[in-house]
Amino acid sequence: MITKDYLLKAIDKDKTVRITIAHTTALAEEAHRRHDTSATASAALGRVLTAALLMGSDLKNESDTLTLRINGEGIGGAIVATVDSHGNGRAFISNPQADLPSRHPGKLAVGELVGREGYLEVIRDTGMKQPFIGRVNLVSGEIAEDLTSYFLLSEQIPSLVALGVLVDTDLSVKAAGGLIVQAMPGAQDAVLESLENNILSLNSISDVMARSQDLESVLKILMGDMGYDIIGQSPLAFRCTCDRERLAAILANLSREELAETAEQTGRLEVSCNFCGEVYHYDWAEIEELKKQKP
């Protein structure tokens, strides 16, 4: 069993195909724990978070971020994951308790929970005046197929994507992970077909993660007899950017009427972070002081 969350990047010897593979079990479990998700919601949330971390591994600068947003008009609602260039990620699903019965033994109904009538959106903020935003219609709501469609339609990169989250009987996440294989200029169809067959032979990427000792061994299975080089490795972690001071500043921007309404609903001033579920409590004196300090 792999004991840590991390990511590997590799390239074939001919430098025509690049592979990114990640183990995200602890991350997916942390997301489940923080949001108290149902089995199917855990699978959907874990897939989106894993996908964002795989994509975010291409971020270059210290402050770069990538946000993956999926809204298929299903009962799970919108799912959003944001990652940085250091392998830190956070995510939420709008309706964490939403669930659906499985139509196939051993396969959670993620596509039905997510829905197929909406879109997949990628926002890359690299410090430019405007972030890059790419959006495509959903294909299946299963996330991996939708991401394959995004790469082809929005970025013109032929890609193979596999994502998986294995949920245990106690609703904890037993294993999670994913991979992206992308064709570079000069890639041969035979090479891509071989890699696709190898991915299909894995059956379920989450099962592979549960059985394997490390990502290097998974990469060997994936590449078969094809030569390759590992060109990068990085740790992954669930980490939120919220803090007490930042959220207090948000409260300070609200009118006194809005603050009074919030206090009436909860009995006190409190703010809960959507991404990590952390709850912060404030008294009126703190907020009044911040309002005085505003220019």
Score class of each variant (00 low, 15 high):
2 I>N: 03
6 Y>D: 09
11 I>E: 00
12 D>R: 12
14 D>M: 00
23 H>E: 06
35 H>M: 01
36 D>H: 14
40 T>Q: 07
42 S>K: 12
42 S>M: 13
52 A>Y: 03
55 M>E: 08
62 E>T: 04
66 L>W: 14
67 T>L: 09
76 G>D: 04
76 G>Y: 04
92 F>C: 04
104 H>E: 14
105 P>T: 12
106 G>C: 12
108 L>H: 14
114 V>F: 00
119 Y>Q: 04
122 V>E: 06
123 I>F: 07
125 D>S: 02
131 P>R: 02
132 F>P: 09
134 G>S: 11
137 N>K: 10
147 L>I: 13
147 L>N: 05
151 F>N: 01
157 I>S: 00
163 L>H: 01
168 D>K: 10
172 S>F: 07
174 K>V: 09
176 A>D: 00
179 L>M: 13
184 M>C: 12
186 G>S: 04
187 A>P: 14
187 A>Q: 13
190 A>Y: 03
191 V>W: 00
202 L>D: 10
205 I>R: 00
211 R>Q: 08
215 L>S: 01
217 S>E: 15
219 L>T: 10
220 K>Y: 05
228 Y>C: 01
228 Y>V: 00
231 I>F: 06
239 R>Q: 15
240 C>D: 10
242 C>T: 07
243 D>E: 07
243 D>S: 10
248 A>Q: 08
254 L>C: 09
255 S>C: 05
257 E>W: 09
260 A>P: 09
261 E>S: 08
269 L>G: 02
271 V>E: 06
272 S>Q: 15
278 E>V: 11
293 Q>L: 08
294 K>Y: 05
